[in-house]
Amino acid sequence: MNIQKSYGDPGSGRGKLYLVGTPIGNLEDMTYRAVRILGEVQWIAAEDTRQTRKLLTHFEISTRLVSYHEHNKQASGPELIRLMQGGDSIALVSDAGLPAICDPGADLVRLAIEAGIDVVPIPGANAALSALIMSGLPTDRFLFGGFLPRDRKPLERELGALKGDPATFICYESPHRVVKTLTAMAEVLGEDRQVALMRELTKRYEEAVRGTLRECLDYLEEHPPQGEYVLVLHGASASETAALESAWWADLTPADHVARYEAEGLDHKEALRRAAQDRGVPKRELYNLLHQS
């Protein structure tokens, strides 16, 4: 068990790890508290020191910078922990938005907690939540998926798991892959599922495209993707969720499911396709599962 009183033990001799949110595009989104903390700590650990230096110069902050990213975290992480155990406080920042979300900052947070160092959030801009609240889709229950898998098979598997989930789904995507991802969503979840495409949030060319998956794909055919995207996907409807929960095949094994269709006169290939469609998984995945030795 770990119990933290963020401001209750100033005499511990240890520094703190501050997770500082930075703008995702518009510098006016920097908070007063973030500027103060960045100026007060002994070190700022940055994913990209060149990018962060521009931010610090803008706000006239002269705190020392140290690099912390995916490729040096094994060496840099323990060194940062040693500095905090010695009394220095460190502010962790990412290139944009909140640190420790889809970046190696989460590993530093775990190391700090294990070392008994207080971890203090300094809230700021966040692309996922900004996109969610402007999407017009339900916000009472949502799931953040970060970056979806690049390869088709794991992508379809992850999307298949969403088939009966009522939660609004949020993910990030690059302009080079957004059409491929939306196409996979349409194939697995249906073309009529509502989605919102948000790009260039807080920047000059901020844009929100809202509609069905089919409508958004048609839009991107006429307007080639530009900038980084946040996709906000409507969750399964109550009828979709109920249909999956009460499906006639729910208690069948995959093999029995396919066999039931074959008993109705379908050939193996078509039975496999129908069963995969029922379960919301790629046909290849179901095929591999049935033919494992």
Rank of each mutant, 00 (worst) to 15 (best):
I101R: 03
I101F: 09
C102Q: 10
D103T: 09
D103H: 02
D103Q: 04
P104H: 06
A106N: 13
A106W: 11
D107C: 06
L108N: 08
L108P: 08
L108E: 06
V109W: 02
L111T: 05
A112P: 06
A112H: 02
A112Q: 07
I113L: 15
E114N: 13
A115R: 02
G116S: 10
D118E: 15
V120D: 00
V120S: 05
P121R: 03
I122D: 05
P123F: 03
G124Q: 07
A125P: 15
A128N: 00
A131D: 08
I133P: 00
M134Y: 13
S135Y: 03
S135H: 03
L137C: 09
T139R: 11
T139N: 08
D140F: 11
R141E: 13
R141F: 10
F142A: 08
F142V: 10
F142E: 05
L143I: 12
F144I: 14
G145N: 11
G145A: 10
G146R: 02
G146N: 06
F147I: 03
D151M: 15
D151A: 15
R152C: 00
R152V: 12
K153T: 09
P154I: 01
L155W: 02
L155A: 04
E158A: 14
G160L: 05
L162D: 01
L162G: 05
K163V: 13
K163D: 02
K163A: 14
K163N: 07
K163S: 13
P166M: 04
P166D: 06
P166W: 02
P166K: 02
A167M: 10
A167N: 12
C171V: 05
Y172G: 06
Y172E: 06
S174E: 03
P175C: 08
H176A: 12
H176D: 09
T181C: 06
T183W: 00
T183N: 01
T183C: 00
A184L: 06
A184P: 10
A184S: 13
A186Y: 03
V188C: 09
L189G: 11
L189H: 05
L189Y: 02
G190M: 04
G190H: 05
E191N: 11
R193C: 04
V195P: 05
V195C: 10
A196L: 13
L197F: 08
M198A: 15
R199M: 09
R199N: 07
E200M: 05
T202Q: 04
K203N: 09
Y205E: 04
E206G: 09
E207N: 12
A208W: 07
A208C: 13
R210N: 05
G211M: 06
G211A: 10
R214K: 15
E215A: 14
E215C: 01
D218F: 07
Y219H: 14
L220T: 09
E221R: 15
H223K: 12
H223T: 15
P224I: 04
P225A: 09
P225G: 09
Q226L: 15
E228C: 12
Y229W: 09
Y229E: 04
V230G: 01
V232E: 02
V232K: 02
L233Y: 01
H234W: 08
